[in-house]
Structure formats: C-alpha cells, structure tokens
Amino acid sequence: MDNSVSVIMPTFNRAHFILYTLQSFMNQSFKNWEIILIDDGSTDNTKHIIENIKDYRIKYFIRSKEYTKGPCGCRNMGIDNALHDYILFFDDDDIAHPKLLEYSMNAFDQYEEIDFCNYGRSVFYNDSELQFKLDNSYKITTIAEEDYYKIIANILPFNTCAVVWKRTAIGSERFNETLIYSDEWEYFQRLLSNGLSGIKLEMDLIFARKHSNSSTARFLNKDSVYYKSTVRARKLAIVNLGEKLLLNKDLFKYFLNQSIILKDKSILMLTMEYYRMKSFQTFFYSIGYDIYPMLKAYYKIKSKIVRNYNNSRII
C-alpha cells in the first residue's frame, strides 16, 4: 500500500469557510496527501478561491451528473477519483489538527492489521477558540469487530471526519445517494458490519464548526426532510444488520429507542421482524409502543404531584 491519504471533501457555497479548512491541511506535518474537492454547484466564489490556491495536491472537480446532488453523490465521486490507499472524508467547514494525518498514519504503521483509525472530535464556534495539543502523549484503544454495535448505537462516537480508512476496507461500498441526513451513519454501519476492526487515538484531531446552517441544526430544528432521511437510514441499517444476523439485544434496544424518539412505529416493527421475535412478543411490544405516550404523561404528572407534595411538607 502507498503511504498517502486521499481527503474527500464535498462543498457547496462555503466560500466563507473553505479556505480555513484547506489551510488546515496545507499546515499538516504529514505531506503525502491529496484533496479531492467536489463542488456540488456552488453559486458563490468558491471556485475563484480554490483557483488562487497554488497547491497541486488540491484537486477541484464539479460534480458529474452521474452522481446525485448532495454530499453522498459528491463523496462517491470522490472515492471513484481518489488515487491513494487511505481515505478520509472531511467537511468543508471543519478544521484538522496539524498532526491529524501524521498521528493517523503512524497508527497504521504500528498496527498493520487494522482497517481504520478513529480519533477524538471537538466543536468550536469561533476560530479564536481553537487550541491544538501538539505533544505525542495520547492513549490508544482498540475497536474490535464485536464493538460495532457501540458505534451504531452512538455509545462510541464515530463522526464522519474522525476516521481515516484503508481503501481496502471501503472496497465497492458507496454512500446511499437517496439519503440527505444520517447518510454517514448508514454508510459506516454497512462498512463495520463487514467485520472491520480498528483503533482510536484518544486525542481531539478534528474540530467541527458549529453554525446555524449545519445539517445537524436543521435536524434538531425538526426539518421534516431530515427526519424522513433519518428514519429511512435506520430502516436500511435494520435490514442490513438483520440479513447479516448481527441484530443483538443491545441493537434491538437502540432501534426501539429510535422508534420512540423519531415517533415512527415502523422502525420498531421492522426491527422485530429482523430480530425474529416471536408473535406474542411482537404483540406486547406493539401495544407497549402505542400506550407509551400515555404512560409517559402519567408518570410525568405523578412525579410533579409528588415533588410538589414533598416541597409543601418541607415548608
């Protein structure tokens, strides 16, 4: 394998952020990289900014019509155009630690059998908040094949920009271009369900910019399109994990909880189908789901009454 990294970066109208992101790679201590920058049809001056950067490693593409508009199509085009044996998916508004690539590639040299290198992530709102730890004192933990459910259930953080992959681990797998949110999560669970293992560097090497126009902000603001995409991603994962006989008790609980959070009973029903649950169990879980909102309201009122009663006794 060549000891170089292809950084795949979709972009759309981020002229006000992208220069800072690209500069964070030009400042890397590890120099063997390329950036495959896929423009999804920007109408601002993104192209002008890129053309003024004199670095042959930054390669600018306009998304081809062969790929669907959106981050997934851009990432797939990036994979298909990447030259190197290590892949990093990166967002056009985040910042890389100056030693992100150096530490990651050192890890691959030290642990030759791993499929990916994961690392920590911090968030920031203003560039003045960024502080980089530059020493080598970080802990390394293993992520075994059986830990996949912790990543899927978000017990073990696994953000898009916080993983460098071996290209052999990705193989022919591509992002689902029908998804606009939870697409990375759905893609990564597919990769991990293929029996991959890796390590985590216990150090923040990616700094995610928080702003009101981010996809996460739209989801939290209950954008219906983003919610529907999340529901679809959960169902795709259930089918994938179910067909591979990987739906264990922990994942059943996770998808049950997701059906409640997303208020979509079909997630629960599909989970029970692929979990191969017996008919009487399916019946009771279905009834439980239906009455859960009433029980939740009841216990909330009861808790309030008890709390008020206890407060009155204290007075």
Rank of each mutant, 00 (worst) to 15 (best):
K222V: 01
L191I: 15
I199T: 09
S224L: 05
E184W: 02
S214W: 06
Y181N: 03
F188C: 10
L196K: 14
Y187V: 03
F207K: 09
Y226G: 04
I206D: 11
A208I: 11
L220H: 08
S212D: 15
S197C: 14
T216G: 00
M203D: 15
R218L: 02
G198E: 04
Y181I: 00
L205Y: 10
L201R: 05
S224F: 04
Q189P: 12
E184S: 09
T230R: 04
G195P: 13
H211R: 06
I199S: 09
Q189L: 14
L220R: 10
S214T: 06
K210L: 12
N221A: 10
G198S: 06
N221E: 10
K200D: 09
S193G: 15
L201D: 07
Y226K: 00
M203Q: 15
E202N: 15
Y227S: 03
L196Q: 09
R234W: 00
S224R: 07
V231N: 03
R232H: 05
S193M: 06
Y181R: 01
L205C: 12
Y187F: 15
N213E: 13
H211S: 06
L205F: 13
A217H: 00
Q189M: 14
A208C: 15
Q189T: 14
M203F: 13
V231I: 12
R190G: 14
V231R: 02
H211V: 00
Y181D: 01
I206Y: 01
L191D: 11
